[in-house]
Amino acid sequence: MKTDFHQAKWEGGLSDLSAVSLDAEHQEIFEKAVAGCAGTPVWQRRIRTEVREFVALSMVSGRIVTAMVDARDDLRIMFELRVPVPTLPDPDGELVVEDRALLVLTYPEESLFSPRPGFSFVNLLQPNHLFLANAAPSDPALPLQGLGQAICLGPEIAAGTPVKEIVLRTFGALTMQSVQLDERDAAGVMNPAAAAWWLQNRHRMPLTREGFLEYEPSDQS
């Protein structure tokens, strides 16, 4: 189900995604993704809507490569996102900003009618050693691929929040366009050491000011 990053030339907004006509390649991704879709009829309909919008977003943004979709119970999407990712592989070393993230997005049926924790949707698999106040500290025992560092997208994700919005919030969290560094805040932080470091290095935030849909892939992509 792999595809190359797609050149973005789209004038619409997020609310227009359902009207995007998928090209043959992305239509195939969509059909394979929903083929094993299970659960109640209401949930299956919702999965189809969410997956189609996600695939449309990947097509028009050029930032996303869909790796795997599993819609047998909760909706799970493994995808690569073109985004600056701050990492600290060596605790005493320099910050390393990678250019892509392998993420797992888990979207449970309960999210349709119940607010969910902001840290329960997205986990970063690669690169390991993500260094963000709003991401769980990495496991140093796993140098190559982590088990999944949870990324917190806010104190709560409201019931019915669509997948496309979760993807955008993830982009905001990784680029630090949206950030919470105050340990005393009721929402808390997931990595106090990272929060302290970024407080001392505010001038490095955000990692990019580019918008999600403004992505221009380079020839080396």
Binding site: P115, R116, P117, G118, F119, S120, N134, A136, A150, C152, P155, E156, A158, A159, A186, A187, G188, V189, M190
Partner: peptide, 20 residues
């Protein structure tokens, strides 16, 4: 409903995060 519920990041380690 959305605005009255929140989850602290510190609850991430819990098996069943308790909402505030």
């Amino acid at each position: 409903f959305g605005s009255e519920v929140s989850f602290s990041c510190e609850g991430a380690a819990a098996a069943t995060p308790r909402p505030e």
